[in-house]
């Protein structure tokens, strides 16, 4: 799972509606996989990502490539887009856990695939 997708995930357990984003990573192993830089896509996503959550997640994973606030000229700042691409689209989480900060539900990641299935009472 790429970090861009983690930035879009929130807990979906029944009744867990507030403070359910971002999911906390625990015991994760990371892997870098090269991908083609697609600036148009990044520009499209700039408005959608929660930048604060992304930076906080990265700091937890010891990734310090990103500035703490999004630069004002993010659309045209190539250096920033490069860094964003490296972090969001090339960093894959291979295994570990994601824990909901609100209800502490644990989503286990195996082979890069998070298990998002819920038990019946959680739906």
């Amino acid at each position: 799972m790429r970090l861009i997708t983690h930035n879009m995930l929130q807990c979906h357990v029944k009744g867990c509606n507030a403070n359910n984003f971002p999911l906390d990573f625990q015991d994760v192993s990371l892997e870098q996989q090269e991908a083609e830089l697609n600036e148009d896509f990044l520009r499209n996503m700039l408005g959608k990502i929660e930048y604060g959550a992304l930076v906080a997640t990265c700091l937890k994973l010891n990734i310090t490539d990103l500035p703490s606030t999004m630069p004002a000229d993010a659309n045209t700042n190539e250096e920033f887009l490069q860094a964003l691409h490296r972090v969001m689209l090339e960093t894959h989480v291979i295994s570990g856990k994601m824990v909901c900060p609100n209800c502490s539900h644990i989503y286990i990641i195996r082979d890069g695939i998070p298990n998002m299935l819920l038990a019946e009472h959680e739906v």
Binding site: L9, M116, L117
Partner: peptide, 11 residues
């Protein structure tokens, strides 16, 4: 990829 049941909704 995610392991998920569409009938449980998505997160």
């Amino acid at each position: 990829l995610f392991l998920q049941d569409a009938g449980q909704g998505m997160a």
